[in-house]
Design a protein around this nucleic acid. Structure first.
Lengths: 291, 291
DNA sequence: CCACTTCTCTGACTATAGTCAGACAATGGA
DNA sequence: TCCATTGTCTGACTATAGTCAGAGAAGTGG
């Protein structure tokens, strides 16, 4: 398998990587072209550009100056914050970006053209599969503090999804709470999943001395569902629980969350009698962990 | 489809391209690392390195000097030709290359690790498919002179394959000839297929004023069979024939060439009575071309 | 043997990419 | 209001990649 991945890497970087740079940079240096592309039709704060392209602020400033000099970009102070500056494409810059867009299409077309219709279908299908699985593999799971902005945004998204999906809506105040302190070692822990730095999922554990651990806050962003991320989070939580000497994991869930329920069943959880009085729960599950 | 290819390109260059450079270059500049890799365990002529990496001779020379200075490479005159110099890895250089190899494995492993067993299988299967089809799409078909070295090597390989596969062997002298002049416009033409500059297939056309055109020299290198290249060559030959005003294409073949025979049938050729006295032929085919 | 080509090397360039320190203005919290 | 922080910019660097012209040795065909 490793050999296959290496062969793939070689073929693809030769065919796609080499070409795409050459196609994208028309006359203009690659750095400028990338920047032009990243600014986008609606403009973008310089700060955002810096983090997205991971550039040194001095270097980025100089790149912007050269694009400005060529009449492709204007940079003005942002209204909201006088320190921040916003880069916007001029009419000329927009045309240039459209040209890059066209070239990107040309590159894709040049790959498809030599193939028969059947081969094109097979290629794009396989590309979609590779893309999805590479995305899945790029998701990183790390334990993080409940007060971390990434964790906060996941939990927030989780609550608002529950509010949408539960028949009766969802108000965190009525539910059994899991405070920051309860999800912070050694009382518990919280895992955050990130894709290219953006939070895309979470899962938490409440540990109870000698008693079963509780799994909470299992959530996966809609954009990355179907990539096995829920399963990965669950497996990781179980492993952490087992590492703390816990032998049983427990959780409760609402009947509206069908995918979650089938995940728990598939992962070896069996339904048990209610072990708490969570008002939003319809099902209670339990699993014995192997040390 | 174009959109899918573009998404694929973006994901893959982010995940694979960026990482692979970083993994490969350990301390050392990327150019040096690539060169070290390309020299390989058995050494390599400088001339070959230049064409394979497509480098300026001055630049390559300097890269070799720096590797030599670091004690990774020795460069000596080749025995066969005093002008050519051969680069060889020292023991230290071999160790360095092994390290690059290990890093390449690590990169592949880092992609596979986060995935489940089922996902890994799906990923490698899809990668193999993409790789094959990208290879297919990278094959270029161009008309070329029969005396061109690429054409010569294809025809040579074709003859030696026939000698192996025909029950009675194959001697070009006994077969109906197709001289260079007959395969040169306007009398005829020869198409060569190349992959990364290496010849991997051919096909030729003999035109006869007002009479059916003859298809000859259809051959595809074993390494690229199953990529639809035979079909592409045949289609291209038919198109060229039609463009010359020919309405019928003809060919004869030996019963040992089963794949070829099914290709002809699938492409719309129907078997006809022998239209010549080619001693090695068992089947004669004909197809009406659409203008 | 001579002219021509091939192959490699050196010297002298340029361009792109990127780093680092520090200046300066705007902001936000104490 | 002051002070630390944030965001941007300039100046002064370095490293990598790459180009081009020409020198000189070795081979090649007539």
């Amino acid at each position: 398998m490793v050999g296959q991945v290496r062969r793939f890497n070689r073929t693809v970087t030769q065919r796609v990587g080499a070409l795409s740079d050459e196609f994208l940079a028309r006359d203009r240096p690659l750095g400028q072209a990338r920047l032009l592309w990243e600014i986008g039709p609606d403009g973008c704060d310089v700060r955002r550009l810096r983090s997205r392209l991971d550039l040194d602020s001095g270097y980025l400033s100089r790149l912007l100056r050269s694009l400005e000099h060529d009449g492709l970009v204007t940079v003005e102070p942002s209204e909201a914050d006088g320190r921040v500056r916003t880069a916007r494409l001029t009419r000329h810059g927009l045309a240039e970006r459209a040209e890059l867009d066209r070239r990107s299409d040309d590159l894709a077309t040049s790959i498809l053209t030599p193939l028969s219709a059947a081969q094109r279908t097979r290629l794009t299908t396989a590309m979609a599969e590779v893309e999805r699985l590479l995305t899945a593999s790029a998701v990183q799971i790390t334990s993080c503090d409940p007060a971390d902005p990434a964790a906060r945004s996941c939990v927030q998204a989780y609550f608002s999804e529950l509010a949408h999906r539960f028949e009766a809506g969802f108000d965190p105040v009525c539910s059994i709470p899991a405070t920051d302190d309860e999800l912070r070692p050694p009382a518990g822990l919280l895992l955050a999943a990130t894709l290219h730095g953006e939070p895309v999922g979470c899962g938490a554990l409440k540990l109870h001395d000698g008693a079963p651990a509780e799994i909470k806050r299992m959530w996966v962003a809609p954009a990355v569902r179907g990539l096995g991320l829920g399963r990965r989070l669950l497996t990781e939580l179980e492993a952490r629980a087992a590492a703390s000497g816990v032998t049983t994991a427990r959780l409760e869930t609402n009947r509206a969350l069908a995918e979650a329920i089938s995940l728990y069943r598939a992962a070896g959880y069996r339904e048990v009698a209610a072990f708490n009085d969570e008002p939003y729960a319809h099902h209670w599950f339990e699993k014995t962990l192997r040390g």
